[in-house]
Structures are given as C-alpha cells and as structure tokens.
Design a protein around this nucleic acid. Structure first.
Lengths: 241, 241
DNA sequence: ATGGTTGTATGGTTGGACCATTGAACAATG
DNA sequence: CATTGTTCAATGGTCCAACCATACAACCAT
C-alpha cells in the first residue's frame, strides 16, 4: 500500500466563485455601500458567465442582506454592517427540525450542570467578574423592561469559559447561538424574567462560593424550567399553525 | 391631510417563498436530514415555478449549509445543527492537542452518564440487543486474549444511540474515534481488561433494567477509572520522551 | 470476480425570450 | 408655467428549452 495521501478534488461551483468575487469587490472598497452594480446582462458578460449563474450568486447575496435588487433600477450594495461574513450558526436552528431543539436541551442538561460543577472548582477572579457583570446587566435589563437575552447568553458562556476546558467553551458557543430564537420568545412569558433572574443568581452564588454540588443542582433545576418553557412554547405555536 | 395610513406593498420574490417552503418542510420534519429532495425538474413542476427560480432558492440554502447538491445524485438535506457541534469537537483537538485528551474525558464525564440515564429509560429491545452483542464480543475477545477495543467502542456507541437523541449519537462518534489510540494502550495494562468487563457489565445491567440512577453512577464510575488510566499512561509517556 | 460499456437520471451551465417595473424624456393639456 | 399623460429604453423577474458532466446501475466481456 502506498503511503501517498490524496486530497479530495473539489471543483468550486460557479456561483460560489461569483459570490467571492463580488464580496471581494465590496471588501476592497471597489464597491461601496449605495453603489449600483452593473446591470445583470452587462455584468454577466464581463465575468464571462451566463446571466443565470450570476443571478444565483446575487440571490444568495441578497438573502444575506449584502445587496438588494429592484426591478427597473438595478442591484445596490447595502450599507448594513461591514461584516459580510455569514453566520451559519445563527440560522442553523431555524433551518433545523423542531426535534433538534429538544435534543439540544437534553445536551445542555448533560453538559451544563457538569460545567457548573467544574467552574465552581476552577473559576478565577476574572471568570467570576465576567459572570457577575453579566448578572448585573441581566438584573438591570429586567428592571428596565428589556429582554436581557444577551446577558443571559453571556452568563452561560462565561460559565463555560470558567471550566477552563476549551472544548466545553467551544461547544457552548454554538449551542447558545442556536437557542437564541427560542430564548427571546421564552422571556416574553409573564413572570419568566423574575424566575430566570433568581435561578441565575442561585447558580452564580454556588459557583462563586465553590460549591460544586450546589452549582450542579442549581443549573439542572434551571434547565428543567427552561425545557418546560420550550415545550410550552412549541405547543402554543402548534395550535396557531 | 388624510389620517389614513398605508403599508408598503411588497411582493415577496419567488425565490424567498420557495426558501420558506423548503425550510418549513425541514422544520416540520417532512424533510428529514439525509433525505433526497425531488429532482429539480420534478420539484419545480410540483411547485409551479421555473427550474431556475427553484435553483436560486436551492443555491441560497446550499450556501447556508442547509442542503448540498451533487451532480448525478440529487440534493440532500444536511444536519446543519449537529454538524456544527461535531465540527466544534473535532476542531478542539487541533487547538490544544496535548491537553485535549483530558478535556475530552471531562466532556465524556458530562455527557455519557446522562446518556446512560436516558438510555435506561428509552432503550428498545433492538437497542439492548445491539449492546448485548457488543458485551458478548467484548467478553469473548478478552477470554481469547484479544484487545476488544472495537467491542468497547461499539458498546458506547450503541448506548449513545439508545438515547434516541441523534445529537448525542452524532457527538459520540468523533469522541470515541479520537480516544481510540488511547483505548488500545490502556487495555494493555495488566488487569485492566477484567476491570473494564465488570464495569461495562454493570452499566449494561442497569440500562437493560431501566435503572436510570444506577446507570448514571455506573457510567460515571467507569469513566473515573478510565480517566485515571489516562493520566497514568500520560505520565509514563512523559518519562520516556 | 474483475473491469469495461452503455443507458439513464441528476445537477451544472448556457442561450434566448417575454413580462413588469422604473425613471427619464417628451408631448399634451389646462 | 405647471400639471398630467405618453412613450421609450433599461432593468430585474420569470420562463422555456437545450446541452454538458457526473454518478450510478445494469449489463457484458474477459
């Protein structure tokens, strides 16, 4: 057997090449927000591709919000944000089976209580400060009538980071992102914000005091509540469909 | 001036409607990950739109990672959410190769006891049969003087599958695969095989009898032993390096 | 069994056509 | 002069119809 290794041959689809080319033009400043792209017929000829292939690329960019096309006018570069980068993670949940959300919550039930226990043993002063900052923000935003879903996520991520286990931290990030949609909805439920606050306070207290078992149980109880909210929300959506 | 208000009339582009339709099919479970979509020509006719309009939608979904098309085969639904999580675990290995084994074991400590508890509640006769087969093979291979690392891995994977949580099952695969090297080494330690066998028998017994708490503890105890073997082996390698 | 051949279904790409909308230029109207 | 209506060219939106390249299955030849 030969020891030579072979890499997969992957001819890049045309539309992806076109996407990159247009994205580069925007990134390099050749195409500034507000600029009008050349007409499709003209641009496709310049690129040496068919108009359809060009349109496939333009539709992707339009869906991502990078450009927007209007009949009779042309295709314009949006001024929205410099980061043209696509976050697959953000949209992953909405393009996944409903069942996946339930599975994700079960995974949280497995990981986060253990993470809380580890964090209670390993959290540095810096870790605790970051968690406390999220706690303070969460409390303020609730009192101010805001949702506080960002502070919620930051707290969980800070806890994952406090385990000083990079694998935990790297896993927690997409898990939280994929549950973002649902998190925002659940915080609209009456009384849920106050509950959320006390549950998080209990978790943070246990972690900062180094009580591993208490931290594990507090997190587990919190996730039980969250999972109950999830099924409750899903039932409501099913009825309105 | 009239007090009447007018809302902007915005006809949704065809390709966005198509995207939503396909996304709903996936979210509702009508299209499961791994499923093959109808052929473009066929699907476009079913939807009453042109093939090109359908392709504009498919290219967006493909760029987002929801779906992937291959010439001569068709267009298949991806496991976007699960893929992201699996990627994170695999990427973590490249970030901290040295301490990754330790981190991975901590992740197992979090996931597998929970998985064992879930499996004890949900395992079907088929699941138990698959686990038992792995148990029998493990016993036979040990008696025959073989390593039995394959049977070991199969048992853990079968347990993960028995949770009937596909995200657990998918995550277990790379975790087990990356531990394979170490597993073979540890089974060379004198007496380790007999220990492994009794530990696995205890786990299997608890799961097959539906004892969730017992299964959790048995798995946790097993992983404690494994982790101890791991650090022991690492120390030995460090001395010889 | 192994390897080559053929046929068919698939996505990839191209060309061309027509429609709907837009804005500008221009004419018609008061 | 200001307003309104008309025409016209350019643009994106949609559709129809091919042809190419790949993949797989079935069959055949060795």
């Amino acid at each position: 057997m030969s020891s030579a290794t072979y890499s997969k041959i992957k001819p890049k689809p045309l539309f992806e090449i076109i996407i990159e080319q247009i994205r580069d033009q925007i990134a390099s400043g050749s195409l500034k927000p507000g600029d009008l792209l050349p007409a499709e017929r003209q641009l496709s000829e310049m690129m040496g591709v068919n108009r359809h292939s060009l349109r496939e690329a333009l539709k992707v960019l339009e869906f991502l919000g990078v450009v927007h096309s209007r009949t009779g006018i042309g295709t314009m570069v949006n001024n929205l944000g410099q980061d043209i980068l696509v976050d697959r993670v953000e949209q992953a949940a909405s393009f996944s089976p409903r069942r996946f959300l339930v599975e994700l919550m079960e995974l949280r039930q497995a990981i986060e209580p253990h993470a809380a226990a580890l964090a209670s043993q390993r959290a540095t002063a810096e870790d605790l400060a970051r968690m406390e900052r999220a706690m303070i923000d969460l409390r303020h935003e609730f009192e101010g009538g805001e949702l506080g879903s960002d502070a919620d996520e930051r707290l969980h991520l800070a806890l994952a980071a406090a385990t000083h286990n990079q694998t935990f931290a790297r896993l927690a990030e997409p898990m939280m992102a994929m549950l973002n949609d649902y998190r925002r909805k659940s915080l609209h439920i009456p009384g849920r914000r106050r509950e959320t606050l006390t549950e998080h306070e209990r978790i943070f207290a246990a972690v900062s005091q180094g009580k591993a078992q208490e931290a594990r149980e507090a997190m587990s109880a919190h996730l039980d509540k969250v999972e109950r909210m999830l099924t409750q929300l899903e039932d409501k959506e099913d009825r309105t469909e």
